[in-house]
Design a protein around this nucleic acid. Structure first.
Length: 601
RNA sequence: GGCCCCGUAGCUCAGUAGGAUAGAGCGGCGGUUUCCUAAACCGCAGGUCGCGUGUUCGACUCACGCCGGGGUCACCA
């Protein structure tokens, strides 16, 4: 990376000066950044401003001294100019050939251009989706899935060893509710009239499962006691729903390396062993929870909602003693129960056992969670810390809500009510590429407005088409050149030296900044940066291209050297777009055909 | 009420480990096509970066306090 070259040069000069006592050692890493204003050079370095205080010298004076040291350290002659500017910036301009030569990397690395080793082979586990197996994926799961997948891809690009994991909550109350829902539909299929409770799962897929069940076991479980059928029906239902979820994931092109089962954690005795571990470490005790805090707000109970709890127990604070985990010692508000009053482990208990176990398999953990789980994060961190790990070994990406709209009109979608919008419906309507890209056009922790009409549009207001069109246009230019019998573009120093127009300079610097961008996006777990980069980069090309029509500076022109240089620029740019899109899981078409929406799978 | 996220142009949002004169898209207005994809581009208009203190060479960025929007405060997962 070119920026590293500058950074290393400064570090060398600063260290040398510090050793000679000319200034103190840098307290923090100096920033090497491309300035907003290109007139300020290729990079701006804030070394003098950072050091001024400790050195007890005015920044500009110190900057001049540092500049001298940098010039002395620059044996290769990479720096063309170095000047003190503004409050004490050192503006660096590199020799043109440094940039031109670097362009060869794109050809050399091809589809790997943009990969870095900043991850140093660190094993990272990315857990995402982990939707309860009680129904197909809805739109919110879709955003989670796409974000998690993109984060995993970026971590891979930056040299991490990535595992993608789905934690299946196939144990506990919710899947039992699913099983009961199936049983009710099963009774209906036998011609009985049942009273379907509001907390049951109303989806049509539940009837499907019931139908399959009836075909398999006939009337055998119609009047059997619940204890007999609950487990088996639950297992069948979960398996069926997981099948649907896998199909949803396949439709958006996401695969997991590992599916972990909550039930298996119990069956293998991991949860029990883990509880023993907690006891041995003195991290649990038997006590009572403080009574629930009064929640202020408008009118408290919404009667229309019916019972919020599956079992409809009263809210009276039971003073029954529970087994509690000392999470408050590690920054959580209160201690959290790991065993219910009936002695069985809580979800939280199994979940920290799961994270504990995951941490054995990876150096760092990433959880992609819905924003409604934000309150859950401190206790997870507390658990990891209590178990002897660093809190920052777990990074949580919180995914905010998706507001679906159609032509600006909000689509009503309730959580548990009937009018859920399934991910599959959206994919069928707008296609995989549009869904993926649009889910990634915002920071994860900001709410996202997703407009179905916009996503379908094949016009420039649709960012995914804008970027894909740019890639197709580049492909088209290269095709045109091949048809004209021009030699296949290859790196040639003499040719790329002709890329001297300001627009060309901007483009080649953007291309060469791509690896840095990818590394930074990965380390920040922020794939939206890549989406922005792609839009801005292709906009710069469109501008160059269209401007060329006016000025006559075309890619394919009379001058063979210029033409060769520009074709190589197009090739490199096309590679960068393709690689960036690949990191987001979006296709990079060579042509934009009329019906670009993905049809079938 | 406690905690978390958000508050930047009319709208939707970027702003890269605090950096020089705050950006993009859409929408509005006005232009560009002897065409390598006009599915594109150019220009104009539009801002007390929610408000206030503080930290320092320097704050949209960090700290604290307000205001506004959302989320969350289970022996449910």
């Amino acid at each position: 990376m070119i920026r590293d070259l500058v950074r290393e040069l400064f570090e060398k000069a600063l260290a040398r000066g510090a050793a000679e006592g000319r200034w103190p050692a840098a307290p923090v890493a100096v920033a090497v950044e491309p300035p907003r204003d290109p007139r300020h050079g290729d990079f701006a370095v804030n070394a003098a401003m950072v050091l001024a205080r400790a050195a007890g010298r005015p920044p500009r004076e110190l900057a001049a001294a540092i500049a001298e040291a940098v010039r002395a350290a620059d044996e290769g002659g990479a720096v063309a100019s170095l000047e003190v500017a503004g409050p004490g910036f050192l503006n660096v301009r590199l020799a043109p050939d440094v940039w031109f030569r670097a362009l060869q990397e794109v050809e050399r690395q091809g589809a790997a251009f943009g990969r870095t080793t900043v991850g140093k082979g660190k094993r990272v586990n990315v857990e995402f989706v982990s939707a309860n197996p009680t129904g197909p994926m809805h739109v919110g799961h879709g955003r989670n899935a796409v974000t998690g997948d993109a984060v995993a891809r970026l971590l891979d690009w930056s040299g991490h060893a990535v595992t993608r994991e789905y934690y299946v909550n196939d144990y506990g109350a919710q899947v039992q509710t699913l099983a009961r829902s199936v049983h009710l539909r099963y009774q209906e299929l036998a011609g009985r009239t049942v009273d379907f409770p509001p907390q049951g799962y109303p989806g049509a897929y539940v009837v499907e499962i019931a139908r399959a069940l009836r075909a398999e076991v006939g009337d055998r479980w119609l009047d059997a006691p619940e204890a007999e059928w609950l487990g088996p029906i639950r297992d069948r239902a979960v398996e069926h729903v997981l099948g649907m979820i896998r199909e949803d994931l396949a439709a958006i092109d996401i695969r997991f390396d590992l599916w972990s089962s909550e039930k298996a954690l119990y069956q293998s005795g991991t949860v029990e062993r883990f509880l023993g571990e907690l006891e041995a470490k003195g991290l649990v005790y038997v006590g009572t929870l403080p009574p629930p805090k009064s929640r202020k707000g408008g009118p408290p109970a919404a009667p229309a909602d019916g019972e919020a709890h599956a079992d409809g127990e009263a809210e009276v604070a039971s003073a029954e003693p529970l087994t509690l985990f000392r999470s408050s010692r590690y920054g959580d508000e209160v201690d959290r129960p790991v065993k219910k009053a009936d002695g069985t482990p809580t979800y939280f208990c199994a979940d920290i056992a799961y994270h504990w176990q995951k941490r054995q398999r990876a150096d760092a953990l990433v959880d992609v969670l819905g924003a409604d789980h934000g309150g859950y994060v401190p206790r997870l961190g507390a658990a990891l810390e209590a178990l002897g790990h660093a809190r920052r070994d777990l990074h949580v990406v919180l995914i905010q809500m998706v507001n679906l709209t159609r032509g600006g009109e909000a689509l009503k979608m309730g959580k548990r009510s009937g009018n859920v919008v399934w991910l599959r419906e959206v994919l069928d309507e707008v296609g995989r590429d549009a869904a993926r890209f649009l889910f990634l056009t915002r920071r994860a922790d900001a709410q996202l407005d997703f407009d179905l009409e916009l996503a379908k549009k094949q016009t420039l207001d649709n960012p995914v088409f804008y970027v894909q069109y740019g890639h197709a246009r580049l492909a088209s230019i290269l095709r045109r050149a091949a048809e004209a019998g021009l030699p296949e573009p290859r790196f040639d120093l003499a040719a790329v030296r002709s890329l001297v127009l300001p627009e060309e300079q901007e483009l080649l610097k953007r291309i060469l900044a791509f690896p840095e961008l990818m590394a930074e996006a990965a380390l920040a777990y922020e794939p939206h940066r890549v989406a922005y980069y792609l839009q801005q980069t292709i906009a710069a090309f469109h501008s160059y291209y269209t401007g060329g029509k006016r000025t006559g500076e075309r890619v394919i022109g009379a001058d063979p050297v210029k033409t060769a240089g520009r074709l190589y620029l197009c090739l490199a740019l096309k590679q960068v777009l393709a690689n960036g899109l690949a990191a987001l899981g979006v296709s990079a078409p060579d042509r934009m055909e009329s019906a670009a929406v993905a049809d079938e799978d």
